[in-house]
Design a binder for these strands. Sequence first.
DNA 1: CGGCGCATTGAGGGCGGTCAATTGGTGTGG
DNA 2: CCACACCAATTGACCGCCCTCAATGCGCCG
Lengths: 250, 250
Amino acid sequence: MLRSAPSHGALAIHPLIRNLQQHDRLSDDECRVLTGAIAQTKELAAGEDIVTEGDRPWVSTILVEGFAARYKLQAEGTRQISAIHVPGDFIDLHSFLLKKMDHGVSAITPCTLSTVPHDALAAIIEEHPHLTRVLWLSTVIDGAVHREWLVQMAAGQAYRRTAHLFCELYMRLRAVGRTEDGSFHLPLTQFDLGDMLGISNVHVSRTLRQLREEKLVTWKSGMVTLHDLERLRQAAHFDPTYLNLQWAER
Amino acid sequence: MLRSAPSHGALAIHPLIRNLQQHDRLSDDECRVLTGAIAQTKELAAGEDIVTEGDRPWVSTILVEGFAARYKLQAEGTRQISAIHVPGDFIDLHSFLLKKMDHGVSAITPCTLSTVPHDALAAIIEEHPHLTRVLWLSTVIDGAVHREWLVQMAAGQAYRRTAHLFCELYMRLRAVGRTEDGSFHLPLTQFDLGDMLGISNVHVSRTLRQLREEKLVTWKSGMVTLHDLERLRQAAHFDPTYLNLQWAER
DNA sequence: CGGCGCATTGAGGGCGGTCAATTGGTGTGG
DNA sequence: CCACACCAATTGACCGCCCTCAATGCGCCG
C-alpha cells in the first residue's frame, strides 16, 4: 500500500504530507508538527455528508482514502458539484477562515478521513511561517482548480469538459500514486459525473459513448482507462499548469 | 470621495484596509504594517493587462479604482472571465504562492493600482499571524466566489446568471461605498459582460431586454439601476452568504 | 459627413435538455 | 437455480436555449 512509503522516521507518511511535498519541501520539523496536529481518523459510507452547508466546523478534514465532492444544492433540487477530492487533499481547510460553510462536502465513495483542530492550525500560523505558506498554497490551488472548472463550464462543450475532467483526475491521482499505466479506479455513477460536469446523466452516457467510439476512454465497472493520453489531452485542450504540480520554493 | 474617510491617523484609509475590515477588525498596528507594505500607485488604461498569463510577479496588486477582470484565453480565441474585481480587492495575492500566473488580469476600465512586494508579504507572515489570517481569508473568499460562479455557470440559465451577477456586483460595490440607492456605475461593453457570463454578446442584449421589460434592471450609458432588488434576488436565487460580508473573529 | 464600434433584432441550426422505454447487472428470497 | 426487484446505463423522440451569421440602428469622433 501507498501509506507504507518510508518516511522521515520509520513511520508511514500521511497522505497529506505526500500531497504538500508535491509543491515544496517540508522540513522534518514541519512534518512532525503537521503529523502531531492530525487528530483522529474516521470512516464514512458513500453518500454521507462530511460537512454540511451552514456548519461552523471547529476542525478541518483531510481525505485519506476514497473520493469526496463539494456541492451546492439548487432551488430546483439539482446538485452541482464544484470540486472533487482525492486522497491527500485538505478538503475544508478554508472553513478555518470562513467559519461558516457555504457548501457541503459528501463522501461519494466510502471514505477514510483525518481531522485537524482549528486550534492546531492557529498554532501553526503563530510559529511556522513556511508551513503556513504551504497550507495557504493548498487553498490557493483549490481556487485555481475552481477557476479552470469555471472556464470549462462557461466556454466548453460537454464532450470537451468530460475529456478535461478525465485528464485532471488522471494527473491528480497519478501525483498521489493512485494510477497505473493510464488507468485508475473511479467508482462513481453517471449521475455523480453529470453533477460534476453540469450535464444530465443521459448526456453523460452519450458523451462516454463518443469517447469510447473514438478509442480515447473506456469506463467499465468503476475503472477508467485512457487509451491515448496525448489525443485525449488535445481533445480536452488540457494544460496542467493550473494544478501547480511543479516543485518550487514557496 | 471615499478615500477621505477618516482613518486611524489623519491619513486617508487605503481601500484595501476598508475591504479587509469588512471581515474582521484590524488593529492600528496591523493597519500601519499593511499601509507600510503598500509600495506604489500606477494607472492603467482600459484594456491593458495588469498581469499576463505565464508571468512570475514579484509584487501583488491591489485595485484602488476601476474594474479589473481575471481571464483565460481559449484555443478558439474566446476570452472567458473568471472573476471581476472592484476597488479594494487584492487582485493577485495568490501569485505570491503560485509563483506562476495561470491566467491574466486586465483592466476593463481605466484603473488605479497599488502594489505590495512579495518580500513584504513574507515579512507579514513571519511577524503578524492575525493579519496573515485576514489576508489568507481574502484569497479564500476569492475561491468562494469562484465556486458560486461555477455553480451558476453549470446549473443556471443565462437570464438567471445575469440577474445573479447584478446582485453580486451590487452587494460588493455597496460594501465599498460605490453604490447609491439601487444603482451603480458599470462602464463595460456587452462583449465584456458576455465574456463574464459565458454567453455571446448577442444573447447579452436579449437577456438585458428581458430584464428591462420585467422592470428589474436597466443599464444605460454605463449606469446600472436595480428597480426591485427583492424580486431580482428571487429571480437570481441569490444568497449572499458566499461573499462572507459578515464580520467575525478570524 | 462618413467611419467605426457597440447595440439590437431576426433567421436558422446545434447541443444538450426532459420524458420514456429498454437492457443489463446484482442482490435477495423462494 | 431461478424469479423478481431495483438501480444504473443506454437509446430514441422531441424540444428549447443559446449559438452563429447577417442586417440595421445609433452615438461618437475625426
